[in-house]
Each structure stands twice: as structure tokens, then as C-alpha cells.
Design a protein around this nucleic acid. Structure first.
Lengths: 143, 143
DNA sequence: TATATTCTTGAGACGATTTATCAATTTCAA
DNA sequence: TTGAAATTGATAAATCGTCTCAAGAATATA
């Protein structure tokens, strides 16, 4: 049984629903992606160059965007690059982001999530994912 | 007395401290900026083209970044562009977003904000802005 | 006020990141 | 196995923001 059977099924379900195909490249990229907490397209390109030197950067971008549509990933822009966060792997992480040096601290907070649920319920919504980013200065950059 | 005397003084203080000059362009851009909650350089470029057709885009980028350094603005990457948030503007709100119909509900929640502060403090951060988006289905689309 | 010094501006070149294009290839259902 | 439809890889192109530099503007000094 593959390591990430659950996510692979989720991806296949999305592909089937949209008349898309399950390709070798998509499987390769999914495997690599699910081992990361977050990654950029460029990083993945270099990582996968060993396994498949002909895998194109455009394919990686296309596939990571596909993962976002399938609900496996979430794009987040910081600095000049886009980070693709793995939201299926370890539970959801929120981010503290230093606007000066770019340092990112991940955190989880059940109380905040509970309050989010309350807000959603009060407005008749059913939440599937969320995004919370706190911007400011880290201890070192404050000086 | 100008509309935004306080912010103008803050800018002048920063300029003086760093041996920078108070120019017509900086005043023009400050005036426009303080009327916004957040704006991109491109948006401001078009907005100000009426008042000064020769104002360059590079000057707007430079000036908005200057405002960040002076503590009047905060850069935030959203989509492919950079949003410059007006820090002096109160009334931050978060968003509930329906992934099916695109409906957006705005909300504020002091308790969540308080918990955010706690998380930040615990990690040595000083928050200046944040972004919270809840994605899911609205009441109508759930059926 | 005149002058010297320094900073700023505008225009376009440039670099980095991401998307679009398109012929060749692969997938998948019949 | 076959054929329609989707995908890929290579690269061109678009987008966004910064850099460069000569010309112009702001401030300090006399």
C-alpha cells in the first residue's frame, strides 16, 4: 500500500470529477509534495531533477496549482515566491511572518479554531479550510 | 490645516531622521494613501495619473516602501501583487468565503484577535496586521 | 538670496517568478 | 487496439517590482 493512499484517492477523485488524467508526473509530484510541510515550485524542481531530469518546471507549477484546486495544497505568497502549503498532511498550520527578514513560525491554536467555527456557524457557513497569517516583526528585527 | 496632519508629521520626522527630503510627490502619494484602507502601487498609479500624469510608477513603489519604513504602511503579498495596508486605518475585518458561490461575509472578532496577540507574544513577535480567511460552504450552497 | 551639496525623480532596462503556447506524447474509455 | 482528449516539456511571453542614471528639486550654508 502506498504511503499516502488517502491523499492519492482524494486527488484521483478530483481528477475523475473534472475529466483530468492520472499521470506519472502527477504521482511523482504528489509523493514529493506530501513529504513537505511547504515548498516552492523551484525547490521541488531541483528536488525531483534527480528522479526525473526531464520533468519541466511548468508541469510542477501546473500540478501544484492543481493540488490547490483539489484541496490538498494552499498557495501562500511571501517575498517574491509562492509557497505551497501541505494542508492534508499534518493538520492545518497557521503562520507568524516577519515582514522584515521573512522568518516564518508555524503554530496551531485550538482555541482560535474553535472561535472560527463559532463565527462560521453563526453565519450559516461550514468551514473546510482556513488561512491565518499574522504579520509583524520578529524579536530580532524589532531592533 | 491638512486633513492628515498627524501622519504628515510622522513622515516628516522619519525623513528628517534619515536625511531624506520632503517632496511634492511624497506629499501627493501620502494624501492618496491615507484615504485608502489598502492599495496596490498599480492602483495608485492610475488614481494619481489624473493629478500628475508624469508621476512614475517607480516613484510610487519607492514611496510606498518608504511609508513602510516610516511605520505608516505595511506591505502584504496577496495574489500576485503587493498590497500596502494603511496602518492608521482601524476597523480591520476578516472574511468568510464560500468556495462554491464566492459569497464573502466580513466579520470582526475581538477574542480571536486577543488569542493572536498571545501567540505572537509567546513567539517574540510584534504583530502589526493579520489576515484571516475562512473557506467553506455558505448555507445555501451546502444543499 | 545665491550657491553648493545631496537627494529624488522619471523613464526605461532589467531580473525573477509564473503563466501561455504548441507540437509531440500519454492516458483512458470504448 | 484505437482514437479522442488531456498532458507534457521547452520556451516564449507576461507580470511585478527593483535598479540605473542623467536631469531636476530640495535643503544647508554663506
Amino acid at each position: 500500500m502506498p504511503k499516502h493512499a488517502k491523499e492519492m484517492e482524494a486527488l484521483k477523485a478530483h481528477l475523475g470529477k473534472h475529466q483530468l488524467k492520472y499521470t506519472r508526473q502527477r504521482e511523482l509530484i504528489l509523493d514529493a509534495f506530501l513529504q513537505q510541510e511547504h515548498i516552492t515550485a523551484e525547490e521541488m524542481y531541483h528536488q525531483l531533477a534527480k528522479k526525473d531530469p526531464h520533468l519541466g518546471l511548468a508541469t510542477i507549477y501546473r500540478t501544484l496549482n492543481l493540488f490547490c484546486e483539489a484541496g490538498l495544497a494552499q498557495a501562500r505568497h511571501f517575498g517574491t515566491q509562492t509557497q505551497y502549503d501541505n494542508i492534508s498532511h499534518k493538520g492545518h498550520h497557521d503562520h507568524l511572518i516577519c515582514t522584515d527578514c521573512g522568518k516564518i513560525v508555524e503554530f496551531e491554536n485550538c482555541e482560535i479554531e474553535k472561535l472560527q467555527q463559532e463565527v462560521a456557524t453563526r453565519n450559516g457557513f461550514t468551514i473546510s479550510t482556513h488561512r491565518l497569517e499574522l504579520y509583524g516583526l520578529c524579536g530580532r528585527c524589532r531592533h
